[in-house]
Amino acid sequence: MAALLVVVAFVAAWQLYTVVSGLDEFVLPAPSAVAGSLVEDRALLAENFAVTATEMLLGLACALVLGVALTALLHLSSAARRGLYPLLVGTQVVPIVLVAPLLVVWFGFGVRPKLFIVALVCFFPIVVPTLDALRRIDPDRLKLLRTLGASRWQVLRFAEAPSALPALFTGTRLAVAVAAIAAVLAEYSGSEKGLGRLTLQSLPQLETARAYAAIVVLMAFTLTLYAGLVALERRLLPWASSSPKGPQTRS
């Protein structure tokens, strides 16, 4: 509720500033102009949104599959941990801004280079907290499973995997937050459609309000995904004590 008030105050201040300063609309459009573009350009926005949303969702799905598989491999095999973990860190120091155009050269203007970039950016925040959670499980919990006669697979299934699920949710939420950035970045490097592409095109056409509208649509989508994950986590993991809304005091 408090967050909503801040947003309202921010938008109001923005509106006021554009009126008082008398800036041209193509320099800084008023929120009302952005809202107008959201309505007028809705077909154009929807068309481009569909492309970006596909890139983000498919990229996230790839990151999730890849991330979970990698986490399991790294957890179960110390050889893989020694051999692969440094390489994983290595993937994160790849300057994506520079690599993205190279991928476009390789894969073309389609969805493939975008998936690659979104997945590359998003799998890391999924792997790190989840692997960390697996490694920090109370040894007595594992001892309990062993004393009940559990096999390696059963220890993973009954104790380790559920213990790590809250961290997997945390990682996925982090991944969602960066997925939009990754998708837009990928579109900047070469694409025919998408909200990032639309923003880039709108500026030389002096359609600044449309560029802002594209950003609003992208933000709304990312927030919806994030909120959906929070709701899913509450529903699936009611026992996890972490408060997904971030640090807050219980009253």
Partner: peptide, 10 residues
Amino acid sequence: MPQRDQLLPW
């Protein structure tokens, strides 16, 4: 039966 109950919270 380990120290502390070690019930699985989920």
